[in-house]
Amino acid sequence: MNFLAHLFLSGLNQEVIVGNLLEDFVVGRIDHPRNASYNSIIKDGILLHRLIDSFTDTHLAVSDCKSLLYSKYHKYAAVLVDIYFDHFLALHWDEYSDEPFPDFRKRVHQAFLLNWEILPENMKPMIESMIKYDWLKNYSEFWGIERALQGISRRTVYESNMQNATEDLKIHYQLFEDKFKVFFPEMISQCKNFLDKKGYIVSNILQ
């Protein structure tokens, strides 16, 4: 899953939200001494991120989508499916959340600003850009997807051609949307179970 889904699936706790996105900047075991500065709630967010990634990587609907893209994009097919699925979450937001989308984005931005001091320095420019350009809103539009893909393509080590992948979304739009609608309620259930067991509030998440 890409940024929007990871943040949405974190529920209402600010530190879980921050930890979820921070996971991309965390190396190795959560109990490693290098991660000792993070409190237990941030660490729960990191663990939630890993649960989401693991469930996504092994789900048949996701595998079907990646298979469709693999011959053209190879290992980057998984990245594309993540972004496509964020598009469908933004597009169908009211089916999955009882929180207005603008309120959600404002709440997420505030969570990072209030926890700014714990963010790794190499993460801060990304968060600044996410807030300034309202990335989460832009996923609902094709031009927003194109901008996200162009940014990722510039950072890849090998030629990815991802900057052109919006066309593949358009061509197979109904298939990707149908697969998302199979996958995402199951993903929600996994995350709600995790958050419920930890005692966190998840009232913004429907289903």
Rank of each mutant, 00 (worst) to 15 (best):
S54P: 03
S54A: 10
T56Y: 13
A61F: 10
C65F: 12
K66A: 11
V79E: 06
V81I: 15
I83L: 12
I83Y: 06
Y84C: 09
Y84G: 06
Y84S: 06
D86C: 10
D86K: 12
H87M: 10
L89Y: 02
L89M: 09
A90G: 03
L91K: 15
L91N: 11
W93R: 03
W93L: 03
S97Q: 03
D98S: 13
D98K: 14
D98N: 15
E99C: 11
P100Y: 05
P100T: 02
P100M: 06
P102H: 10
D103L: 08
F104I: 02
K106V: 09
K106L: 14
R107F: 08
V108E: 00
A111K: 05
A111Y: 08
F112C: 02
L113P: 01
L114A: 06
N115C: 08
E117P: 04
I118S: 02
L119T: 04
L119I: 07
E121M: 13
N122M: 13
M123T: 03
K124A: 00
M126N: 00
I127A: 03
E128I: 11
E128V: 11
E128P: 03
E128G: 06
E128C: 09
M130S: 01
I131G: 01
K132G: 00
W135C: 12
K137P: 00
Y139L: 05
E141N: 14
E141T: 14
